[in-house]
C-alpha cells in the first residue's frame, strides 16, 4: 500500500507534535519510523490510521483515510492493547473482535501467535503484564494482515526471547504476505536487519527518509593506530570514538571519496560499517540547545 503525506500537522493545544510533514512511502516494505521520545511518531501514525482528523493530507493508495471506510479497512495501528480491547476483555475476546470486524483477519494465525508468544486466551487484558500486552498487540497487528500495518513500540516490556520470536514472526509473515509495515522502535539495532527503509523524524519534522543500506553507507567506522586514526579523521564529522590502548575506533559520518579510501589503506586503517543506531543518534542530536 502506498502512503502519501502532504503538509501534515498535528497539534495538541499549543504543542505541535507533527509540523507540516510531507513524505511518501512506495509500499510493500518494512519501514522503520525512528525518533526520540516526543518526536511525533505516535501522532504521525495516529493520523495515518485515521485515529485523528489530519490537518493536511494523508492518502493511502490515493484515498484519504479519515472516515473513509474502504481505506480504514486496509489499516491497522497498534499503539498498545488498550486501543484494540478493553481492559476487562479476555484475550479470546480481542481475537473475536478482530475476527468479527476485520475482513482480512487470519484467526488461525492469531491463535498460532498467541501460543508462540505465550499469551493465555483466558487472561483478561488488564491482567496481562506490560510485555504480554505488547505481545498481544503484535498478535492483533500481524493477524490483521492489513495492507498497512503499523506497530508503535510493540517491543515495550517484552523479554529478549519474546522479542526475538516477534522479529522472526514479523519477517516470516512479511515474506509470506508482503505488505507495508511501519515499525517505530527505540531498539534500533535489534530491528535494523529487518528494516528496508528508514524514516527519521525529530521535533515533529522529517529529518531523513532513506533506504536502510544507503543510510548505513553514510557512516564508516575507522579502526587502527590512534595517531593514524586522528590524522585520518581530521576535518571529518566524527560521531564518536573508542580507545583501547594504542588502538582507536572512530565513527565518521559522510561518504568517503576515493582519495580518502586510498589514504586509509596507506595508513593501514580498517574501515567498516557503523550501527544505524549511532547514525540515528547523530542525526537527531541537539545542536546549540536545539535539535
Amino acid at each position: 500500500m502506498r502512503v502519501d503525506v502532504q503538509g501534515l500537522t498535528v497539534r495538541y493545544g499549543s504543542v505541535t507534535a507533527v509540523d507540516d510533514m510531507s513524505f511518501s512511502l512506495s509500499g510493500n516494505k518494512i519501514y522503520g519510523l525512528l525518533g526520540r521520545n516526543g518526536s511525533g511518531k505516535t501522532s504521525l501514525m495516529s493520523a495515518l490510521a485515521g485515529y485523528r482528523k489530519p490537518a493536511g493530507s494523508v492518502l493511502l493508495d490515493g484515498e484519504p483515510v479519515f472516515e473513509n471506510a474502504a481505506a480504514m479497512r486496509q489499516v491497522c495501528l497498534v499503539r498498545h492493547m488498550s486501543d484494540a480491547a478493553g481492559k476487562g476483555d479476555k484475550v479470546s475476546h480481542v481475537l473475536e473482535y478482530g475476527a468479527a470486524w476485520r475482513d482480512t483477519w487470519d484467526n488461525a494465525y492469531a491463535l498460532e501467535l498467541t501460543d508462540l508468544l505465550g499469551i493465555s486466551l483466558k487472561t483478561k487484558v488488564g491482567a496481562l503484564s506490560l510485555g504480554q500486552g505488547s505481545a498481544l498487540g503484535v498478535v492483533v497487528g500481524l493477524a490483521s494482515r492489513s495492507p498497512l500495518t503499523m506497530l508503535d513500540e510493540s517491543h515495550v516490556g517484552m523479554d529478549t526471547p519474546t522479542r526475538y520470536a516477534f522479529y522472526d514472526a514479523l519477517l516470516n509473515d512479511f515474506m509470506a504476505h508482503p505488505r507495508t509495515i511501519i515499525i517505530s522502535t527505540h531498539l534500533i539495532e535489534e530491528l535494523a536487519s529487518l528494516l528496508e527503509e528508514v524514516v527519521i523524524i525529530d521535533s515533529g519534522r522529517l529529518v531523513l527518509q532513506e533506504e536502510a543500506d544507503v543510510l548505513r553507507s553514510r557512516g564508516t567506522e575507522v579502526t587502527g593506530n590512534a595517531s593514524d586514526v586522528d590524522e585520518f579523521t581530521l576535518g571529518l564529522t566524527v560521531l564518536g570514538e573508542k580507545s583501547l590502548g594504542r588502538t582507536k575506533a572512530a565513527m565518521v559520518y559522510g561518504t568517503l571519496d576515493d582519495s580518502q579510501l586510498i589514504r586509509a589503506r596507506q595508513l593501514g586503517l580498517e574501515l567498516g560499517p557503523i550501527a544505524l543506531q549511532d547514525l540515528f543518534v547523530h542525526l537527531t542530536e541537539p545542536v546549540g540547545g536545539k535539535r
Binding site: G50, Y51, E67, N68, A69, M72, R73, Q74, V75, C76, L77, V78, S82, D83, A84, A85, G86, Y97, G98, W101, R102, V140, S144, S146
Partner: peptide, 16 residues
C-alpha cells in the same frame, strides 16, 4: 468510551 475506540482500532469508521 470503550467500544468506539476498539471499533476504530479494528478498521471501522466513526460514521459506521
Amino acid at each position: 468510551h470503550n467500544v468506539l475506540p476498539i471499533a476504530i482500532a479494528h478498521g471501522r469508521t466513526r460514521r459506521e
